[in-house]
């Protein structure tokens, strides 16, 4: 099935050619977010926030055809 992946901020470096509108990625039916990360080159246990269709989800969230997966690094600066 095909999903769209958007990598934000520092995560963009794992797919430097990816368009702003998102990268089309083919993944097996029933894949969860955790299963997609290695396909993108995102390291295991990289701290990140995952959103599917603009809603925050856990990494065990199973994806569906047409889902938009957005991945963010934690941003904690204020000073």
């Amino acid at each position: 099935m095909r999903i769209t992946v958007k990598l934000f901020a520092s995560l963009h470096k794992y797919q430097p050619g990816a368009p702003r509108t998102g990268l089309g990625v083919d993944v097996p039916e029933g894949s969860d977010i955790a299963a997609v990360l290695p396909r993108l080159g995102v390291p295991d246990r990289a701290p990140l926030v995952a959103m599917v269709n603009e809603k925050v989800e856990h990494l065990d969230r199973v994806l569906k055809e047409g889902d938009v997966l957005s991945l963010f690094p934690p941003i904690a600066g204020g000073c």
Binding site: A9, V49, H58, A76
Partner: peptide, 30 residues
């Protein structure tokens, strides 16, 4: 952080940051 930033208003009933980062251990910095 760098060129990026984020803003959100959190009311007492909202999940807010725990909705994003969860209830468990979080990294000190990003």
């Amino acid at each position: 952080a760098g060129f990026v930033g984020q803003v959100m208003t959190i009311l007492p009933d909202d999940p807010g940051l725990t909705g994003i980062y969860g209830e468990g251990q979080v990294p000190e910095h990003g």
